[in-house]
Design a protein around this nucleic acid. Structure first.
Length: 592
RNA sequence: GCCCCUGUAGCUCAGUUGGAUAGAGCGGCUGCCUUCUAAGCAGCGGGCCGCAGGUUCGAGUCCUGCCGGGGGCGCCA
């Protein structure tokens, strides 16, 4: 596998050393403008001050030296601008890359082993089962899911987990609301007002509370748990539709019932980190950077229950010390910002290196409908549920919409605009490119055109700018995947996939693969280029959790696009292509 | 008051550890289907990258200060 950046970096180092110059942090970058070459380095600019010579002098010395070193594929070295050294490569570079892509296949290309088998738990969504998911849950859901796919591709052992908050006051409140509805009474202040509660109440066959006596605590909890189970099933089904998958659903009640909260607190106590203040049991989180100490167990006057933090720390003790994850990523909404400092402090108090805990806050998603903002309040029951949006625009469009921008960016979803533009969604742009690739392979088979083994094909015929642009796009995927995984930023993959689809459409338009006017040798080269583009798109689409459809007929475009559910089989689909032998089925392994 | 995120084209957003003349989609206008799907391609128009300083050979990107937007600072979860 030829990593051009490394090859060039090594050459630049060698060149500088042979000139007797110090070797700085050599940066090899891809210039934005084609006239600046395929790659460039700023080494001369960085060195200028240190050495006390004009940057262009250094650059031109370096350029002549590099010319004589004999770097593979290097066509020309030029000095430009304030002192850049620009590299222009021969097309052989990209033709060789094509072979690399085909050999590596979907499973092997752009799969840097960054995790080296370390375990990572990604916890996300974790919405309370007291009502349907809202759109914001969906956004962070596809984010967490995509992060899981990315890390998995990059050599981590990933566990995606939903923490089910199935205990405590919210469940009681849900039970109270349910029973009130069942008796035909209005839901009490602070209860859950949504229609789904009335709906559930009509189906609840629990204790008959139609008699005047008030329901007991047991009745309330039983009703609440019953309702939470039903709601959780709905949540699951919505997430399934969007291809947001979990390996584990972890019950908060199971933690509390197992006594883990008490165990965790006694662990703190043994370390001398606890004290009692006004009847409440406190944890010295200020010892670990928090702005104030936090309550673990409320005073008797306040009910004497454990706080949410105590449960959360027990849960994190479970993650790090019981299940032993090397790394934990918590994906929260920005409205949980207030708990970050105490959670991090508490984890450190457990004796865990806080660097192993990564808390990612997703900024808020707000909705508007043609300019009027739409409120989202679960308790009032006045909000747009995620499943409704999915019904309207389809899971694929919803999913990609949530993966185009960074989660650091607060977004406003204009429902009116999204509905009217869903047919123009970038997801179709990318999927259509894949469908075109599939169509080319279908037609090839229909016309009984053979696909010769790649080592017998004249890839040097691939010199059209469109062909080279497409290959250049493919060459960027490994670094895009690596950066996206490092920054936990799947939207970078989205940007790449759109870009690559664009390059493919351009190629498709200008470069006919098969036909009477096309030299058969060129057909062969282009067919392999199409195979490679398909591999790249499959990788990108799988990372984003989107289907790679073999056909998209415009007659099926109508107003309500019913996108097939995304591939549940996760990232690297096992569609390896044997480059030496038979023609591949471009869509193998990405079935629905 | 303090903490986190953020301000880029009419709208929604990209912009790779600071790189050369800032990009895409949508919307507007104009061309291109006898060929492997026009859900496509090509072109035109659209910008004081919130403002002001600073660091640097070089700042949309880093630092400081203002201005604007969102979120958070519970014995709630």
């Amino acid at each position: 596998m030829s990593d051009m950046r490394q090859v060039l970096a090594a050459a630049v180092c060698e060149g500088l050393e042979s000139l007797g110059l110090p070797v700085p942090d050599v940066q090899i970058e891809r210039p934005a403008r084609p006239e600046h070459g395929d790659w460039s380095t700023n080494a001369a600019l960085v060195l200028a001050r240190q050495v006390g010579r004009p940057p262009r002098d250094i650059a031109s010395d370096l350029a002549t030296r590099l010319d004589s070193i004999g770097v593979p594929h290097l066509d020309r070295v030029e000095v430009a601008g304030p002192g850049f050294v620009n590299f222009r490569l021969a097309p052989t570079w990209l033709q060789e890359l094509l072979v690399d892509v085909v050999h590596a296949g979907v499973a092997g290309y752009a799969a840097p082993d960054l995790g080296r088998g370390a375990t990572v738990q990604v916890e996300f969504v974790s919405a309370n089962p007291t009502g349907p998911l809202h759109v914001g849950n969906g956004w962070l859901g596809s984010y967490g899911d995509a992060v899981g796919r990315l890390l998995q591709r990059c050599g981590w052992q990933v566990t995606r987990e939903y923490y089910v908050n199935d205990t405590g006051g919210q469940i009681r409140s849900l039970g109270t609301s349910l029973l009130a509805r069942r008796r035909g009474e209005s839901v009490p202040e602070g209860g859950y007002q949504g229609d789904y509660v009335a709906d559930l109440a009509s189906r609840y066959s629990g204790p008959d509370t139609s008699y005047p006596a008030p329901p007991s605590q047991d009745d309330v909890v039983a009703a609440g748990r019953w309702a939470a189970d039903r709601i959780l099933a709905q949540i699951r089904s919505t997430l399934d539709r969007m291809g947001i998958l979990f390996d584990s659903w972890y019950s908060q009640a199971s933690i509390e019932d197992g006594g883990a909260v008490a165990d965790t607190i006694s662990l703190f106590d043994h370390k001398g980190l606890c004290y009692v203040d006004q009847g409440a049991l406190m944890l010295r989180t200020t010892d670990f950077g928090d702005s104030r100490d936090r309550v673990l167990r409320k005073s008797e006057a306040n009910g004497g229950d454990y706080t949410y933090l105590a449960g959360d720390l027990a849960y994190h003790r479970n993650k790090f010390l019981v299940r032993g994850f090397d790394r934990v990523i918590d994906v929260f909404g920005a409205d949980h910002h207030g708990q970050v400092a105490s959670l991090k402090a508490g984890v450190e108090a457990l004796g865990v290196d806080p660097g192993r805990l990564d808390i990612r806050l997703g900024q808020m998603v707000s909705l508007s409908d043609g300019g009027d903002s739409v409120m989202m309040s679960k308790r009032s029951g006045n909000f747009v549920p995620l499943h409704q949006l999915v019904d309207q625009i389809g899971p694929g469009v919803t999913r990609l919409l949530s993966l185009v921008s960074s989660i650091d960016q607060a977004t406003t979803v204009d429902l009116a605009a999204v509905r009217s533009q869903s047919a123009d969604s970038p997801v179709y742009y990318v999927q259509y490119a894949y469908a075109r690739i599939s169509a080319i392979h279908r037609v090839r088979q229909q016309r009984s055109i053979p696909l010769d083994p790649i080592h017998t094909v004249q890839l040097s015929l691939l010199t059209h700018q469109r062909e080279l642009d497409l290959l250049s796009g493919l060459s960027q995927l490994p670094e895009v995947v690596a950066v996206a995984a490092r920054e936990l930023a799947p939207h970078r993959v989205t940007a790449w996939a759109r870009e690559l689809a664009g390059r493919f459409h351009g190629f498709y338009h200008d470069c006919r693969v098969m036909g009477d006017n096309v030299d058969p040798a060129l057909t062969q080269a282009r067919l392999w280029l199409v195979v490679a583009a398909g591999i790249g798109l499959q990788i990108g689409l799988a990372l984003l959790g989107l289907a790679a459809p073999e056909t998209m007929l415009s007659s099926e475009l109508p107003e309500a696009p019913a996108t097939a559910p995304p591939d549940p089989a996760l990232a690297p689909a096992p569609a390896s292509v044997d480059p030496a032998a038979a023609p591949p089925d471009p869509a193998a392994g990405t079935a629905e």
